[in-house]
């Protein structure tokens, strides 16, 4: 379990209540309760699933994604440059990071918060223990679905390797002077092992953000991380399929004679 004061290490203070790793019944009640704003509200579809509206953010905002440039990342991250134009990794200073981290933490302070502790990666030796902190119920539902849920035993001794503050309602008013792309921010700090997200409501920003973090740590530990689908035959023979959207990755890894290991 977690107490409100445990969040002060992230700069989040005077938290009213923490809803820790909510179960699906709690989530359903929270995201459909009366009085929620448009983007906070879950709608029940005909099948009984909950759908949400993420406003103008119907996809990731790659131009708002930055990584803190420091001694750890300077020579390890593949930075965007004249010679590496296709890289998506743009640097920010520690000062700008701190500025937006404070904005996100202030937004989450004095609130009733949802926190979700979960795993990224199936392998117990290399999985990342991730903690998400947010004020919007459906966002905690999203990460509960997307990541691996720990057992009650595993939760008891859970110590996060990486923490994400999701503050969709907060924006950075000083973005212009700081030379940033917009008031929205998706910042990663590999020394503090934290990400702060502001402005965007797109849930996939959390999923792909952690995928990017896995893509930092795994290859440096001699593990091949990749963006693919995989299936396995009855002799245990595994095939992996790479391809950009529209090339048949999902169609071709779905095979009646083979079990799907994962898709994307």
């Amino acid at each position: 379990m977690m107490a409100p004061e445990d969040l002060s290490v992230y700069g989040i203070h005077d938290v009213a209540e923490i809803v820790y790793n909510p179960d699906y019944n709690t989530l359903f009640a929270e995201e459909t309760k009366p009085g929620l704003d448009k983007l906070e509200r879950g709608f029940i579809t005909r099948t009984g699933a909950v759908s949400v509206d993420t406003g103008i953010f119907t996809g990731r905002s790659p131009r708002d994604k930055y990584i803190v440039l420091d001694d750890k990342t300077r020579d390890t991250v593949w930075w965007k440059s004249e010679k590496a134009k296709v890289s998506d990794n743009k640097p920010i200073s520690h000062e700008i990071w701190q500025h937006c981290k404070d904005i996100a933490a202030r937004q989450l302070s004095r609130k009733r918060l949802f926190t979700v502790d979960c795993f990224s990666g199936t392998n117990e030796n290399t999985r990342l223990r991730v903690r998400f902190i947010m004020e919007v119920a459906w966002q905690s539902h999203f990460v509960k679905n997307m990541f691996i849920r720990p057992t009650p035993e595993e939760l008891k001794k859970f110590k996060p390797d990486f923490v994400v503050l999701m503050a969709s309602k907060a924006v950075n008013p000083d973005w212009k002077e700081q030379g940033l792309n917009s008031e929205n921010f998706i910042f990663f700090n590999l020394s503090e092992n934290m990400a702060v997200i502001g402005g965007t409501w797109y849930g996939g920003e959390m999923k792909k953000g952690i995928f990017s973090i896995m893509n930092y740590y795994l290859p440096l530990r001699g593990i091949a991380s990749m963006h693919c689908s995989a299936n396995v035959g009855n002799k245990g023979d595994v095939a992996i399929f790479f391809g950009l959207s529209g090339t048949g990755k999902t169609t071709l890894s779905t095979d009646p004679n083979r079990a799907l290991v994962g898709d994307d």
Binding site: T76, V77, W78, D88, S212, N215, Y216, C228, G243
Partner: peptide, 8 residues
């Protein structure tokens, strides 16, 4: 096949 998510 996923340049947007490559960190190294």
């Amino acid at each position: 096949f996923g340049a947007a998510f490559l960190l190294v």
